[in-house]
Amino acid sequence: MTNQDIGRLLGDVSSHFERPHDIVVSDQFTREQKINLLRHWEHDLQLLMVASEESMTGATPGQTAEQMKAVCDALSALEGLHRPGGPAKVG
């Protein structure tokens, strides 16, 4: 994958992948690229959760929380680290 391709994916990771696990098992990316994609997805979800708390989106909070857990689990698998439980609020 070229840097331009990665940049396009970073713009909206969730629209290009159905599940975070799809990134983990992909052979198209390096480990660092996978972590970068997942971190962008995690950040997007954090912003969505904040917007949801402020009634600025129609997203289902439970669904967003499930996606956040899946992203955190995928990052843990790639980083080989235990990540703190629960999403952090951004803002």
Rank of each mutant, 00 (worst) to 15 (best):
L48R: 01
D5T: 14
L37N: 06
T2S: 15
R31E: 11
H21P: 00
A77R: 07
D5F: 06
T57V: 08
A65W: 03
H16I: 04
T60V: 11
S52L: 01
E53M: 04
L48S: 05
H16W: 13
G85V: 15
G11N: 15
S14T: 10
Q33A: 08
L38G: 05
D5Q: 10
N36L: 07
D12P: 01
S55Y: 04
A88W: 12
E32K: 09
Q46R: 11
A70T: 04
V50I: 12
H43S: 12
Q4V: 14
L47E: 06
D22W: 13
H40L: 01
D27R: 09
H40G: 00
P61G: 02
V24A: 09
T60G: 02
H16R: 11
D5Y: 08
V25I: 14
A77G: 07
G7V: 08
P61C: 01
E53L: 06
V13D: 09
L9D: 03
G80C: 08
R19P: 09
V13F: 13
G7A: 14
A65V: 11
R83E: 04
R8P: 04
D22I: 13
G86V: 15
G7E: 14
I6P: 04
M1K: 04
D73I: 07
I35P: 01
T64A: 09
T60L: 00
G58A: 02
R39V: 13
M1R: 05
E18K: 13
S76I: 07
G85N: 13
A51T: 00
Q46G: 11
R83C: 08
A59C: 00
G91P: 01
F29H: 09
I6M: 06
R39K: 14
S55V: 01
G62K: 04
D44M: 03
T2D: 15
A51Y: 03
E32C: 05
G62A: 09
T2H: 12
